[in-house]
Amino acid sequence: MTGLLVVTAVPAEAEAVRAGLTDPTVTVRPVGVGPAVAGAATARLLALAEATGHPFRAVVSAGIGGGFAGRAPVGGTVLGTRSVAADLGAESPEGFIPIDELGMPPEWLGGGPSVDADPGLLADLRQALPAATVGAVLTVTTVTGTAASTLALADRHHDAVAEAMEGYGVAVAATQAGLPFVELRTVSNPIGPRDRDTWRMREAFAALTEAARALG
């Protein structure tokens, strides 16, 4: 995918992606953890590229994340149909209220509380990665760590298959720049109570390298 910018949270993810690439025009950059720094850093990379006369053609948020049990297997690959700001909203006695139900116009949110993947990019990756699980990827600022919060997220987002911490921020930066966007994740652990015995980091990084072959 010529002219592609792939952003990851940390250098280890960037190295795993680079290990699977053959196209020298694909740029991979680690931009930091969480939607704020990821969005700001991505926006800066896009602006600098445009200023030098070599703009990027599209943006991919890539890395590892947690998968919802029964929806995305540990060690598997996930393609996001949309990236969702899952914990942006308000608490209430009746439960969590998503930001779009608080009466704020979509333009205050960079287009809305979720950003759809570009249909063309998503279709290309689905063809190249036919075994990947496809669904919404939730962006959270606090990693889900209890059975109750996992159930609540799954109930609020019936199409969600995974969660991570950067996708929505990167998606907003790409959207503001008028560029196609998609999120690609590999699953290192099931979402829920933190049990490191169930984590498969090595398998997730290996899967990320393999999935990166679809990027060029």
Rank of each mutant, 00 (worst) to 15 (best):
V7W: 02
A9F: 04
P11H: 06
P11R: 10
E13N: 05
E15C: 11
E15I: 09
R18E: 15
R18W: 06
A19N: 08
L21T: 03
D23W: 04
P24Y: 01
T25A: 14
V28T: 06
G32R: 02
V33I: 15
V33Y: 02
A36I: 12
G39C: 00
T42P: 01
A43C: 10
L45M: 08
L46F: 01
L46W: 00
L46I: 09
A47H: 06
L48R: 15
A51D: 14
T52L: 13
G53F: 01
V60R: 08
S61D: 07
A62R: 01
A62G: 08
G63I: 10
I64Y: 00
G67T: 13
G67A: 12
G70L: 03
P73H: 07
V74C: 10
V74S: 11
T77K: 00
G80M: 09
R82L: 04
A85S: 12
A86S: 03
A86W: 00
G89C: 05
A90I: 00
E91V: 03
S92F: 05
S92W: 01
G95A: 05
I97L: 14
D100N: 13
E101N: 07
E101I: 07
G103Q: 09
E107V: 09
E107N: 12
L109Q: 07
G110P: 07
G111A: 10
G112D: 06
G112S: 03
P113F: 03
S114M: 08
S114W: 14
D118L: 09
P119L: 00
L121Q: 00
A123P: 04
D124Q: 15
D124R: 15
D124I: 11
R126H: 12
A128K: 08
P130L: 02
P130A: 04
A131K: 06
V134Q: 05
A136M: 02
V137T: 10
T139S: 06
V140N: 01
T141I: 13
T142H: 14
A148R: 13
S149D: 15
T150G: 13
T150Y: 06
A152Q: 11
A152T: 10
D155F: 00
D155T: 12
R156I: 08
R156M: 07
R156Q: 07
R156E: 05
H157G: 07
A162P: 12
A162Y: 04
A162M: 08
E163M: 04
E163K: 07
A164L: 12
A164M: 15
M165V: 13
M165W: 03
E166C: 05
G167V: 04
Y168C: 05
A171N: 05
A171K: 01
A171Q: 04
A174C: 03
G178W: 01
G178P: 13
P180M: 04
P180G: 06
P180H: 03
N189P: 11
P190E: 09
D195S: 06
R196C: 06
R196L: 15
D197Y: 00
W199Q: 12
E203H: 10
E203W: 02
E203A: 14
A206D: 14
A207T: 01
E210M: 11
A211T: 02
A212P: 09
A214W: 08
A214M: 09
G216V: 07
